[in-house]
Computed example of a mutant assay.
Amino acid sequence: MFLQSKSSDAIVEVEDLETLFNPLKDKIHGKIQEGQEEQDPEPFAKQDLTFASGEELPRCWIDPNYRTAE
Rank of each mutant, 00 (worst) to 15 (best):
M1R: 07
F2P: 04
L3K: 01
L3G: 00
Q4P: 03
K6L: 08
D9T: 14
A10R: 11
A10E: 11
A10G: 06
A10F: 14
E13I: 09
V14S: 00
V14D: 00
E15D: 12
D16K: 12
L17Y: 14
L17A: 08
T19L: 06
T19G: 03
T19E: 06
L20K: 02
L20M: 02
L20Y: 00
F21L: 11
N22M: 08
N22S: 10
P23R: 06
L24Y: 15
L24E: 12
K25Y: 05
K25M: 08
K25W: 06
D26L: 09
D26V: 12
K27F: 06
K27L: 04
K27V: 13
K27S: 05
I28D: 00
G30N: 03
G30F: 02
G30E: 03
I32Y: 05
I32W: 03
Q33M: 05
Q33V: 10
E34W: 05
G35D: 04
G35L: 03
Q36W: 15
E37V: 12
E37Y: 05
E38Q: 06
E38H: 05
E38M: 05
Q39L: 07
Q39Y: 09
D40L: 10
P41D: 01
P41I: 03
E42V: 10
E42L: 06
P43L: 01
F44H: 01
A45Q: 14
A45C: 12
K46R: 09
K46P: 09
K46A: 03
K46E: 02
K46W: 01
Q47G: 10
L49H: 01
L49V: 07
L49N: 02
A52H: 13
G54H: 02
E55F: 13
E55G: 11
E56R: 15
P58F: 02
P58I: 08
C60V: 13
I62V: 06
P64R: 10
P64F: 06
N65K: 15
Y66A: 04
R67V: 12
T68G: 04
T68H: 05
T68M: 04
T68K: 09
A69M: 12
A69F: 11
E70I: 14
